[in-house]
Simulated scan of single mutants.
Amino acid sequence: MLNDNRIRIITGHYGSGKTEFAVNYAIQLAKANKKTAIADLDIVNPYFRSREKEEFLNNLGIRVIGSSIKGLASDVPAVSGEILTPLQDNTFNAVLDVGGDPAGARALGRYYEYFTEGNYDMFFVINANRPETREVEKTIQYLKNIEIQSRAKVTGIINNTHLLKSTTVEDVMRGQKLCKEVSKNLNIPIIYISCIESVAKDLPNDLEGEIFPIKMYMREEWMS
């Protein structure tokens, strides 16, 4: 994780779990004593936004950048100019949580000048249970559409196939099979296998990609 490029872009289909991964990723960076910022560029989906955990993340030393208008009750399709700080300041490790469809990815495209080779990674999160990423061809098309709209190239795939707290090893392995096919077709490596801690410990050790156990910070305890 610490060897990934300084700017990490997290994208994928709506409901893939990309925000949960992005938050967990930023927390791991902070725990490694890295100067970290997470920017919420998701101007499409009003639910499970990283800015909802701003106070919690701030207490961990993570800078949170969201809408240009403060207030959880306000869902404004605008990104704060503050996002330029971690993009321009090389002392930051930046995590960008991008909108979950090609239209949402357009918000990222305006910053393409900062995404030079060796300076960024764009990780495409795949949940094989989502309608647009259940089949190899549809997943590839979805990924390519996001690349076009964002004007950035995907550099890694994240298998985040899940059914929330009901996720099993079999679910993850089914997603891994799909991810391997996408990886083979596009010559893009599987970087992480993301799943809840109770499942991660039972996964085989020889899988392509680093096993990345996560906690469900974005869902309250009472949620399924």
Score class of each variant (00 low, 15 high):
residue 155 T to D: 11
residue 164 L to S: 14
residue 77 P to M: 05
residue 14 Y to N: 13
residue 50 S to R: 00
residue 107 A to N: 07
residue 109 G to K: 04
residue 17 G to D: 08
residue 98 V to E: 06
residue 163 L to H: 07
residue 154 V to T: 11
residue 43 I to H: 10
residue 118 G to R: 05
residue 203 L to Y: 12
residue 135 E to Y: 11
residue 121 D to L: 01
residue 160 N to L: 08
residue 108 L to M: 11
residue 150 S to R: 02
residue 19 T to C: 04
residue 4 D to P: 09
residue 220 E to M: 02
residue 94 A to N: 05
residue 206 D to I: 07
residue 212 F to M: 08
residue 31 K to M: 02
residue 224 S to D: 14
residue 77 P to K: 14
residue 219 R to M: 07
residue 214 I to S: 03
residue 217 Y to I: 15
residue 134 R to V: 09
residue 77 P to E: 15
residue 172 V to N: 01
residue 34 K to P: 09
residue 121 D to H: 03
residue 162 H to R: 13
residue 220 E to A: 09
residue 203 L to I: 11
residue 30 A to M: 10
residue 44 V to K: 05
residue 202 D to H: 10
residue 162 H to N: 15
residue 141 Q to R: 15
residue 34 K to L: 11
residue 114 Y to L: 07
residue 190 I to V: 12
residue 111 Y to W: 00
residue 18 K to H: 00
residue 28 Q to K: 15
residue 170 E to P: 06
residue 30 A to T: 14
residue 51 R to D: 11
residue 37 A to I: 06
residue 10 I to M: 11
residue 12 G to R: 00
residue 179 C to V: 07
residue 182 V to Y: 04
residue 65 I to N: 00
residue 221 E to V: 14
residue 134 R to P: 01
residue 31 K to T: 06
residue 37 A to K: 09
residue 47 Y to N: 14
residue 84 L to V: 14
residue 38 I to Y: 08
residue 14 Y to E: 15
residue 22 A to D: 08
residue 128 A to Q: 14
residue 192 Y to P: 00
residue 134 R to M: 12
residue 9 I to T: 08
residue 18 K to A: 10
residue 209 G to L: 04
residue 74 S to Q: 12
residue 151 R to L: 13
residue 95 V to A: 05
residue 105 A to K: 00
residue 115 F to T: 04
residue 1 M to S: 15
residue 60 L to E: 10
residue 153 K to R: 15
residue 133 T to V: 04
residue 40 D to N: 08
residue 73 A to H: 12
residue 192 Y to C: 00
residue 183 S to N: 04
residue 190 I to Y: 00
residue 50 S to T: 12
residue 146 I to G: 02
residue 135 E to S: 12
residue 83 I to P: 10
residue 118 G to I: 03
residue 64 V to T: 01
residue 118 G to E: 08
residue 146 I to Q: 15
residue 86 P to S: 10
residue 39 A to F: 06
residue 109 G to I: 00
residue 88 Q to A: 13
residue 65 I to T: 01
residue 89 D to G: 02
residue 220 E to P: 04
residue 106 R to K: 15
residue 40 D to I: 04
residue 161 T to C: 05
residue 23 V to Y: 01
residue 82 E to R: 13
residue 195 C to D: 11
residue 176 Q to G: 11
residue 71 G to K: 08
residue 142 Y to W: 03
residue 149 Q to N: 14
residue 212 F to R: 12
residue 86 P to K: 12
residue 49 R to Y: 01
residue 16 S to M: 01
residue 159 N to A: 01
residue 74 S to N: 13
residue 192 Y to G: 00
residue 153 K to L: 10
residue 38 I to S: 01
residue 169 V to S: 03
residue 53 K to C: 08
residue 91 T to V: 12
residue 108 L to S: 03
residue 144 K to L: 12
residue 48 F to Q: 03
residue 222 W to Y: 14
residue 2 L to H: 15
residue 124 F to S: 07
residue 5 N to F: 12
residue 167 T to D: 03
residue 216 M to F: 03
residue 201 K to C: 02
residue 81 G to R: 10
residue 181 E to C: 02
residue 38 I to P: 06
residue 163 L to W: 07
residue 53 K to L: 14
residue 99 G to C: 04
residue 129 N to C: 04
residue 64 V to C: 02
residue 206 D to V: 10
residue 64 V to I: 02
residue 124 F to D: 06
residue 25 Y to F: 13
residue 158 I to S: 01
residue 30 A to Y: 07
residue 14 Y to I: 11
